[in-house]
Write a protein that binds this DNA or RNA. Structure first.
Lengths: 342, 342
DNA sequence: GTGAAAGCGCTAACAA
DNA sequence: TTGTTAGCGCTTTCAC
């Protein structure tokens, strides 16, 4: 292995000078800097990460706990991981994975062993046992998702309340007099993730404001049969369909909904509206492309990482809840507005 | 921070004894072991990963380069990441992420900086610039995917040649006298990933053996329009459809194929057969569930990690190419065999 | 502007 | 069976 001593020897300087050239913590004469940098390049020197972590008490690693557990739904986590990895690299950090099924203990393992300088936890539930542990660690923690009690933890998430509002506002503007939410699968509702409630709250408030009835149908699961049943129920709720606006907050079930409607001879965008909450990628992949409120995984992740590095660089700051605004895109499944928008 | 010295002091032993209790590299009297373990628990001691890596020259980290690059298709990589992370944890290792668009340089960064003890590279192309770099590193590297020139590198992949053979054998056994491959999107073919060729080679050989014509139609991309066009072409190739067996080696386009067939009034499993190559999860999620040859991402990953830890524990061993056998599952889209299987 | 030297918290060879 | 000690390759004071 090539060490900084080797570099120092070749450059004819002391080992500490090599260190200072790397860190920039001391002013170095241009000539010295040049010689050191040439030596580093010539020897293809890479500082030993462990040694650096030991001496500097900084590992330059971000721990990421991803929502992998046996049987868990992992649709849509890739853009999060990807963006987080990328943000980390932009600031010369690395990402170490932990899986959710390792539980809160993994957080202590990562933090206690100085394996990482900060943690990102995804898929936070309303009462998440990890948050209490996370709060007790003496390193920055960012939650993606909002627990019931945020304590002193910084959270980032999509503004689901706003998403609910946006969905209802749009369907109302389309002229629908009846809005049905083909909701999250029962398992997700039971898991008590905060965003389910937040979305419903926003949607309901908006419906009340518009004086439009808002009903929710909960599919037993995300499978085809359950979705078909739920959709039948939703359609039954609207005697005719032409004033029906359908909100589908769970992106996974959208293809099944569209397929079923097609089989029933109903054309979304003409006979009724379907408005989904999902990533733009997913929305463009359905047939036909579904009008959607984007969940912005990349923006959420980037916001989270910005917060993380702020904590890492500027030290503790008051905990915040960062909510990312959802964005509406009209595609083919919502009927045209009956009157021009203001 | 709690160090092993603190533990030693509390347990009334020397610091090195604490180290030996952890590593098991020396026999320790039961009494001493008990006192040390109690002290460790009482102080909630976690060895400093950096210090340990520095002293032992082992980071206990596996570097994983995932196929994330702007615009890349990342469908199906999650089960790989998940399984790799899990296998690593089972052996008390951690996984550090690198993204593909960082290129070969990232490999040198991870290896040179002693950030990890071994590397796993996914999504290997036929002529992959990373393999040459990887071969020059002095740490174990496992490729998931097989490059043209494997050199001294260990590779693991699905046996795509066998998959092709299996697909054709099954469709022939179904009684089809005409097999069309609705192939990989053109971009993938151009990228020159080895498995595309291997699959075709196996399928073609089998078709020749059966004396059945085998034709390939290449969709321009994985989008709905391109798939529709390719499917039309495939159907045109078979004058009638009732002797047509359709092979779809690209899992992503299966839903579009099935949707299109449904729209055309054709029922797979009755009017023709559709046999996909995809994960079992994906196969069960289509409508109707598609007969498939599974790509076994979990078995492939586990095989890769087994090989990796063998290299890590038993030192260098001759490079191998480990091929995982694909598995056929009959679901609803292949017609029943006209005569009983042998 | 630069160097010498003292750690950081472990592992492992050496000694008893 | 256990203790002593010399590093591992950096960062960072202190001294010049």
């Amino acid at each position: 292995m090539v060490t900084s001593r080797d570099v120092a020897r070749l450059a004819g300087v002391s080992q500490s000078t090599v260190s200072y050239v790397m860190s920039g913590q001391r002013s170095i004469s241009p000539e010295t800097r040049r010689r050191v940098e040439e030596a580093m390049a010539a020897l293809r020197f890479r500082p030993h990460a462990g040694a650096r972590a030991l001496a500097s008490r900084r590992s330059r690693v971000v721990g990421l706990m991803v929502p992998f557990s046996p049987g868990a739904d992992t649709t849509g986590v890739l853009p999060f991981i990807e963006t987080i990895a990328r943000c980390a690299r932009e600031r010369d950090h690395n990402v170490l994975l932990a899986t959710e099924d390792e539980g809160a203990g993994a957080l202590e393992r990562l933090a206690g062993g100085a394996l990482c300088d900060a943690l990102v936890l995804m898929d936070i539930e309303a009462k998440d046992p990890r948050t209490a542990v996370a709060a007790g660690l003496e390193l920055p923690v960012i939650l993606i998702g909002v627990p019931e009690d945020t304590g002193q933890l910084t959270c980032v998430d999509l503004d689901f309340e706003q998403a609910g509002r946006l969905a209802v506002d749009e369907l109302a503007a389309c002229g629908h007099r009846r809005i049905v939410e083909l909701g999250y699968p029962r398992a997700l509702v039971r898991r008590d993730v905060n965003f389910v409630r937040r979305f419903g709250r926003g949607a309901l408030a908006a419906a009340r404001r518009h004086g439009i009835p808002y009903t929710r149908v909960t599919p037993e699961d995300a499978g085809r049969t359950a979705v078909d049943a739920a959709l039948a129920e939703a359609l039954a709720l609207a005697d005719g369909t032409d004033d029906l606006g359908l909100v589908v907050p769970e992106g996974r079930i959208v293809p099944a909904v569209l397929a079923r409607l097609a089989e029933s001879g109903l054309t979304p965008g003409r006979d009724l509206s379907v408005l989904a909450v999902c990533t733009d990628d997913a929305a463009e992949a359905t047939h036909p492309p579904v009008s959607n409120i984007s969940t912005e995984p990349r923006t959420v992740s980037r916001t989270a990482m910005d917060a993380l590095f702020r904590l890492l660089e500027d030290g503790p700051e008051p905990a915040r809840v960062g909510l990312v605004l959802p964005r509406l895109t009209r595609r083919h499944t919502t009927v045209p507005h009956p009157y021009p928008l203001p």
